[in-house]
Amino acid sequence: MNLTLKVWRQKDASSSGRFVEYEARNIIEEMSFLEMLDVVNEELVAKGEDPIAFDHDCREGICGTCGIVIDGSPHGPWDATTTCQLHMRAFKSGDVITIEPWRAKAFPVIRDLIVDRSAFDRIIQAGGFISVSTGGAPDGNAIPVSKDDADMAMDAAQCIGCGACVAACKNASAMLFVSAKVSHLGLLPQGEVEQDRRVLNMVRAMDAEGFGNCTNIGSCEAVCPKEISVDFIGRMNRDYRRALLRNE
């Protein structure tokens, strides 16, 4: 199939960007979306033009590195799918595809489709962990964990930190990301101990990074490649309320 791509090109963080049109020819439906971009890039290099920069690594939907807004949808048209797992059979010949980076103040564009998501790391550094050092841990079976809690913690822990939730949210809110980590750790007895500190610190860090607020719409959940539920946001709202009442 042949496609027309409108791709956001931006040299670096301080330059302004614009859309540039490219033709993608002889694309086959077995290709992944990123492999389609590989093909376009190979042609660009052959013509002596700068290839399109985009983040990617594992190409199997788990590392969370890739992320492109495709026709207004973070990670493209398929549900529960990262950009790297989106395949070209989702498109048909003649389609015009708009390709943009994540848009959020907290995720500045570094080049073309690459954004800086280090804000997520700083939020985790503010409290997204359990304060145990190596050694001295009790036996793994010393503290039983109910299967329901463990399963729900795992539902939250599946987050790959890709940032699609922020990209989809009209307020660029990071609530789904933050609440997933707060819930994952808070649901386990091991993490419950410092849950108050954790949620207060992580929310403070989130606000400082310049993410927007949750207006309870649910776009984040709809685009999340790991289908993380907005229930976790409600859960964090509760955890924060409790922490605030009990502390400070």
Partner: peptide
């Protein structure tokens, strides 16, 4: 043991054990 203490959500049985 270390990973459980860190909050790795390993699969559990109904009795709460790993």
């Amino acid at each position: 043991d270390q990973c459980v203490a860190q909050g790795v959500p390993f699969a559990r049985e109904y009795g709460g054990l790993l």
